[in-house]
Each structure stands twice: as C-alpha cells, then as structure tokens.
Design a protein around this nucleic acid. Structure first.
Lengths: 207, 207, 207, 207
DNA sequence: GATGAATGAGGATTCATTCAT
DNA sequence: AATGAATGAATCCTCATTCAT
C-alpha cells in the first residue's frame, strides 16, 4: 500500500502536500538502500503517484531529491545542538538520543552519505555536519580536558561515531545483544552508556 | 586503465589468477560505491575481462561475488584478533590500525554492509563480525571493569564504532581536521587517540 | 520493415493504438516461433517502437504480453461457437474454417501453448479452450450418438484435433499433398473432408 | 539430480555411452520446451557433464543435436508401421498407441517440429514423416473406400492428427476429462475410440 | 573424452528522464 | 499538478560456441 493512502487513512487532517510526501518516502528508501539502491519509480509509487513523471514536477532530478532529503533531515539535528550552546554534555546527548530514536532513518542517511564517493553528495553532508562538529568543538574547548589540542578533532569525531553509530548500524549490533537494539530498554542502556562514555572520555582525570 | 594491465606492468611476478583479480577490483568498487552502485560490467572491465560473461564463470552472480569479497576481507581481521587472545588491548588496537590503514577498503565494506537492509548481505557481515565481537567480549570480561554486565555489549559495540568508524568515514572527518585524515601523521594521532580512549573506557577508575 | 510503417503506408486510416499494434506483431511472432523463440526486442522493433522499453509501458513483461495475445485470439473463436448454440455441426465447422483460414496464426498459437510445459501458459490456454469444449460437448450430447458416455470427451478432443490440426500444422501436410495446403482449393477440400469426417464420426449408424 | 547419476543408481548395468545419455536428456528437454526453450547448458547439466564443452565433442552444435534426437525418435515409429505392411488398421493402431504411450516424448517432439518455422528442422521431420504417410496411403488405397482420390491425403493427415494429437497435447485434454489422460484407463479409452473412429472414417458405408 | 576458461552477442527488464497533454 | 507515452542507456545475466589443456 502506498504511503499516500496509508496516511490518508490514519489521520483525518488534510494530507501532506505531495512534495513533503515524496520527501518522506524518499527519506525512508534512501536510508534503507542508499542513493543507488532506490529507483525513482519506487519512490513515486510509494508516494502514491501514478507516474514517475509527476515527481519531476517537484524535484529537478533524483539527485536534487536526495539533497533535499538530507538537507531537511539535518536541520532539526543542528537545531537540537544549537539550542544547547552552553549546556553540559549530558542533557545534549539525551536530547540527541531522543531525536535520533524518534527519527531512526536520519543516522543511516548521514552514515551512507559519509560513505559515498560522490563529491556532491558528500559535500552536502559535510557542510551540514560542520556546524555540528563546531558545537562539539566549542564544548570540548570550554571544558578543560587533559587531551592535547591536536587530539580534539579525533575526540569530537569519535563522540560523533559513538552517538550516531549506534542508531545507524544497530543491525550489526543485533546479533550480540540479548535484547532488540531498538527496544526502549536497549535505548535506555545505550543512553546510559553514552553518558558514562562521554564522562570518561571528556572528564578531567584525577590529579 | 584496467587493473589487470596495471598489475602486469608494475611487478614482473606471474599475474593473479583471474578469480582473485576480480575479487580485488570488486572489493575496491564495492567499498567505494556499495553493492547497488557498482555494475558487473564495471568490475569485469576493471579486471581486464573482455566480457562480463567471463565473470560469471567464477561467481554465480553479483551477490555471490559480493559475499566472496566480504568473506575474504573479514578473514584477516578475525585472524588479527584471534592471534591476540590474551594480550592487553593496546597492541591489539595497534595491529588493527595497522591492518585497517593498509587495507582501507575493508572498513567501508563492513560499514556499508551493516547499513544494507538486504537480509542476506547483512547476515554475511553479521556472521563474520560475531567472532570479532566475541573476542572483544572475552577481553572485556577478563579485565575487571567497573561497567555493569549489561553494559558490556554496548561498550564492545562502541569500541568497534570508534576503531572502524574512523577508517570507514574519514571523508566526513576531512572538513574538521587540519591534516588529511589518511596521512601517516593523522593515522598516528588516531592511533594515540584510540589507545587513550580505550584506556579511559575500559580502565579501572580510581578507587 | 516494421509493421508500423507498413500499416501507415497501406491504409490512410488512423494508425492502431500502440498496444494493439504490439499485440498484432507479437501474435505473428509467437505463432511462428513460440514463446521462447521470440525476443521482446524483435517484437518491439516490428511494432515500430524505437526501444524495447516502450513495450513495457503496455505489458508488464513478456509473459503478460503472451497471455494477452492468446486471450485476444481465443475470444472470436469462442464467440463463433457460442453463436451457434443449437445449430447442426455442418455450418459451425464451416464458420470455424472460415475464421481459421482468415486468422491462420491462431491455431498455431493454441497448438504451441498446448505443448508448453510451463504451467502458467498452459493454464491460460486451457481456460480459454474449456468453453469451446463445453460447446462441443453440448452439441454432441444433444445428438443421439451411438458413442458411450465416457467416449464423448475423446470424441470432442478428436474433433478439435481434426479441425485445428490442419491449420496448425499444414507444413507437415505439405509434402504429401499435390496442392499447397493453404490454397483456396486445398481449403475447400479440407472443408469437405471435415464435414464428411464429422458426419461419419458423429452420425447415427445404420440400424 | 542429473540423469547420469540417476541412471547409474537404478541399474547395475554399464552406463549408457555419454552420447546416448545426451540424446536421452535432450529428447526430454526438447519435447518439453522446444528447440528455443532449451539451453545447451541445461542439457549438458542433465547429462551429468560438468561442462557444456563436453557436449560439443559429440554433436557439432545445438541444431545437430536436435536433428539427431528427432532422427533417433522417428526410427522406431517408422519401423512399427513398416512391419505391418499388409495388416488391417486395427492392430497397427494398437501397436502405435503402445509405442506412443511408452515413449510419450516422441509425439510432442514431432508436433513441435511441425510447428517450427525453421526450414531445416521442419525438413527433417517432414522427411521422417513421409514414409509414415506413405504407409498410410498404401493402406487406405488397398481398402476400397468411398472417399474420392483427392480426399485421401486429407484423410491420412486427419488420422495422423487423431493418433498423435492425443499424446502430444494431452495437457489440453486434461481439463475436460474426468480421469488423467495418461492413466492406463484413459489410454484404453483412447485406444478404443481411435479404433472406432478409424473404422468409421475408413470403413465402407452401407451399400 | 572431458573440462576450465573465455567471449561476443543477445536475453529480459529497469534506469532516469522528457514531452505533450 | 499530474499523467500516459516514449526513449536511450544501462541493468544483470544467459546464450551458443571455441580453445587450450
């Protein structure tokens, strides 16, 4: 069943504008199968369009659609972080986890884009990620760490890997955990783990 | 230029058997562009085959080739870890980094496969990764950590993310580091970072 | 030369819709060479399409096209028989021969499909033929024959073989007849033969 | 399982020479799916050959194999008829039915070949069928029929259709008969039907 | 007699995209 | 804003056949 009809059923509100509908289903597909693994036909069908041509009314081409998906996905993340300029890491991580576990497609999208050799696509993600790293940097710099200056990028990138990696690749986690990695309980554990890991990695060591 | 001719030129040794040649170029392509992003035609051409049909003499189909690539790639990694059963983490990490920086395609292959929704592909990777996690588990269990039992899978998976993530996604790292992430110097920094991170994450805390 | 241009040339009427055009040329090809013996490319070219892809706009795949061809071909035959519910056999045979000699592709199509081991294809033909046999049955049952009840299916099938077989396999007939089996004269003889054969097979015997 | 191993298992006798083995499996495949519907690879595999190339040691090419299959298949039929030069039709029909129901692939092979557009293939069958028709002719001519001279080819061809058609296309017969068309019982009925039909078609009419 | 390897041609089908309506 | 039709290029894969071993 197409997402279009599905959505029409679930809520009585006016249906999403076609463009957003397309973005939604495209986000899902791209996150699952990557840019090359999804066909425009598939997306159009999922969006309830009877014809692929209709999609081109909203997006110049497949790549433009992909870019739009990523752009739209990155925004709230950046916002989450931006809102927590001066906060300590704990609550920020909490909020990030909240967001990522509600929008589980996003980390995979970013992960994939980071792997893509295509200059263009990578650039989009990179530019979207830069502010995120900047915020991380600032936070790390404010706290007096006993890491050397030159280690900070590695540390920031490592934290990024830890936080996003779980959500992006939980399928690899599945075989080694007793409980489903996306269950509320597992998420709670991961949340706790991340906080402790963060504390250990960024914390001041004993004098 | 095809890899075949390239290799024939560079070393005077007898050329690789066709099958290995195909595996080599396939590994490269799959790591770069993912399963869906590579065409059999492309791989065959890279391998110096005049025709795609020849490839099918060695591999039943594209997926079988992909599986073979991953299987072959995972083996040395598992070996690296297996050889260091009772060693402390430091040297193992060192050796892993050595291997990963020499075979930079591998982490990306694994990363990609972990993202794939395709049951089959993911299963392959998962089964290849399980022994790796097992080894990590054993190591973590031997050392008396002040993590709780239930945190151990998350910790093991986190370390995996930290170690492999850098190599898999260094392109995302590029915009935030002053030196190229694959330069020897950057690798040295990452090596040092990982050791310290490992020490902090798995080390005993002060009483 | 493509049928498309051919037709455009011969009559000034508006050209057939593409779909029907495809059906026409496919009917011809399938009848001549069988399902496996015809390529979609060939059919598309014959239909004047510049590309095979266009064909897939009208038919889901090769088999769907084949099914459509058979379905379309069976209809008039069934109609011919249906219209002659209560008539004696003679005129019906006449009309059948008229139709079959005007549409000589059809018997071969049916013949071929009856030979195919492919479950699907055979089912299509079988289901299309059933009403035809039913009509034959009814006719045979009405006349008081001195065949036993259990012989009737064999008799009906035999008549079917006699009538359709000539048109389907006249090429086998060629070496043993002095005149070309599709010449009007030969058709006339076959018509006469069939009527007499029918009379002898279904007729009441002398007391 | 390949026919090769199968046969090795069933009887302790020395296995068929490869060439005959190939002919056997080819006969089966060609009868089922026609010339175009069978691949050399398939036949080679069925014959237990590990490689298609081996087949070319025995037959110049696919068509030569097909011709050999048909030639080999026609021989015993012609023999059956030849042995009964002066006999009445009844026993001959019996013997034909016996042969055809033991070798059910043959009628289908012939039926298919009769449909083939390929000049070469059809010629083979036609030339193999000619003596059969000749025998039929002779028989018909000996008996004083009240058919006209010019009807005789049509009559002979009709009898051919009746006899072979049942075996070639029993799958079309399936939906309209209460018992499986290849069951001994159905064969018995068909045998009886054919004899009666033959009697009626070729018998002298009332004076 | 048999086989592993290779290959050019072609198999069906899907790709992203365009255009007229 | 949407759609039916069309299309060139590409997809994976199989075809029959050959050759050296």
């Amino acid at each position: 069943m197409s997402v279009a009809s599905e959505q029409a059923g679930t809520n009585g509100e006016q249906p999403l504008p076609t463009k957003d509908l397309i973005l939604d289903v495209a986000e899902k597909r791209f996150a699952e199968h990557g840019f090359a693994g999804v066909s425009v036909r598939q997306i159009a069908a999922d969006a309830g369009l009877k014809n692929q041509a209709s999609l081109y009314h909203h997006f110049r081409n497949k790549q433009a659609l992909y870019e739009a998906v990523i752009q739209r996905g990155m925004e709230p993340i950046i916002e989450v972080i931006a809102r927590s300029k001066t906060e300590p890491a704990g609550p920020v991580i909490d909020r990030l986890i909240d967001h990522l576990s509600e929008k589980p497609l996003l980390p995979r999208l970013i992960w994939r884009a980071g792997l893509d050799e295509s200059e263009d696509l990578r650039r989009i993600v990179a530019s979207a990620l830069t502010p995120l790293f900047q915020l991380g940097f600032d936070a790390l710099s404010r706290s007096e760490l006993d890491w050397e200056e030159e280690d900070l990028p590695h540390l920031a990138f490592g934290l990024f890997q830890l936080i996003f990696g779980y959500f992006a690749q939980f399928s690899l986690f599945e075989p080694i955990t007793p409980i489903p990695p996306r269950s509320p309980e597992a998420l709670e554990r991961q949340r706790r783990f991340l906080k402790r890991a963060n504390a250990r990695l960024t914390g001041r060591r004993r004098s």
